[in-house]
Design a binder for these strands. Structure first.
Lengths: 246, 246
DNA sequence: CTCTCTATTTGTATGAGTATATCTGGCGGG
DNA sequence: CCCGCCAGATATACTCATACAAATAGAGAG
């Protein structure tokens, strides 16, 4: 690790020191720069190496520990936990993951998980939604008609649609999970719309999902959502369908 | 500070102060004792109220913030975030949830989520497992034959089986999620085996899942797992099937 | 192999000082 | 007279340095 008190690994400006440090170290851990089980160095040593106080360093440790990346005991020191114990679905962790070098395999895993969650969500939404949910979904669709998915407004509208759909499931656990995953997946789609000009018009499949839900046909809603995800995946530049099937 | 007023922090003795305090406050927040958006009091005020140093109190704040329960800014103070931003699938959060007053509705949500995840996992495992995965699953089953589910060994064997199954999906995100949810759900089943004598022998449905996976029949594996979960749910004392269907 | 003892590391406490966002009030324009 | 904008005051979290306490892994005696 680089020495010198002035390195302060470049982090977003608005963040406090402990947040920025946690982010920096978190990205390093997620990128696999340290082997699991490997020691992390003493507090005094590390805090001095990063040019921060021991207090700030310790608060960063608390954050990373809370997310399952580290564990520390007196005399034993601080160690990186086995990958299995990491909270991979933590939104912040996902953000760090994509800020570093996104692991291709994990992105595929996320898509696959989304492929499990969202069709089931559509199915549930079809039976449980009320008029208000439907109105919110329509609002999102209207936004998608006005703005392209390459614009910020278009992406927000898309997100509104999916959020409304999830809320209609009346399942808090599902909502919590899906928002994390969807946000992460959407982060990857940024590249898609930045690099390619026009993948395809995503409206038809969205409307198919909406109609199936509106008419309260669970099985049709599931199928429509599966189709939507299949098409979205097909547009991804770097992910190949063969990989998806493994 | 004054040790006479060690009132609220009645937490497990093995934990450090910041952990215990985070747990105590986390349980309070999850129980809905404070309204979202409500202020949380200043550091000096609160730390003195709990009879701990500001250092320990602040580290507790970092933990709760990392899990999405709080946010704090200078001058504005520390506030409870809207429930939507909480990281409900965090294992520690789930543990706190059941340590407090478990919300019946959320338990149902978890069951429902499990009902979405595990059948899909079984389906994937059926196509991707190798001989080693199968050996581990059989090992778990053997343990379940030797020990009853009311014993610690029996529960461990059951967990081994499900863990092996999940690993066979080759999907890290799925593993991370399912272990949290399954652990939480299993936590609720403790009551079942403590209070009732003998619900039923869970082996047949487990073996059905194993056989479907072993013979690489994804759809059969999914069906078998759905049946397993249906039976497990039926054994629950406090959860009624009608609630599940809503 | 078990027990004890110690030395290392994290954990806790305290006080001083900094940074930043909110709030207040004044100023100028409408 | 009212409204919007800007600058300073102010409350609050944030950072730092230092000292001491607690716990435990590991060495060493028995």
């Amino acid at each position: 690790m680089k020495k010198g008190a002035d390195d302060k690994a470049a982090a977003p400006r608005g963040l406090r020191i402990h947040q920025a440090l946690a982010r920096t170290l978190g990205i390093a851990i997620l990128s696999g720069e340290h082997a699991p089980g490997e020691g992390f160095g003493g507090e005094i040593e590390q805090s001095e190496a990063f040019g921060v106080s021991r207090t700030a360093y310790r608060e960063a440790m608390r954050i990373l520990t809370a997310k399952g990346l580290l564990e520390s005991r007196p005399k034993a020191g601080t160690h990186i936990t086995p990958r299995r114990r990491w909270n991979l679905l933590d939104p912040e962790l996902l953000e760090w993951m994509f800020a570093g070098k996104p692991d291709e395999g994990f992105i595929i895993d996320l898509f696959e998980l989304r492929g499990v969650i969202e069709p089931a969500a559509a199915e549930l939404a079809a039976t449980r939604h009320d008029v208000d949910d439907l109105a919110r979904m329509d609002e999102g669709l209207a936004g998608m008609r006005r703005h392209d998915l390459s614009t910020a407004e278009g992406q927000a509208a898309d997100q509104d649609f999916h959020t409304a759909l999830l809320d209609a499931t009346r399942n808090e656990a599902l909502v919590s999970l899906a928002t994390s995953v969807a946000a992460a997946v959407r982060w990857t789609t940024r590249f898609k719309h930045q690099h390619r000009k026009h993948p395809r018009d995503p409206l038809p499949e969205h409307e198919a999902v909406r109609d199936a839900i509106a008419s309260r046909r669970p099985e049709a809603a599931r199928k429509a959502m599966e189709e939507l995800l299949r098409l979205a995946l097909a547009d991804m530049p770097n992910v190949k369908m063969e990989d998806y099937g493994r």
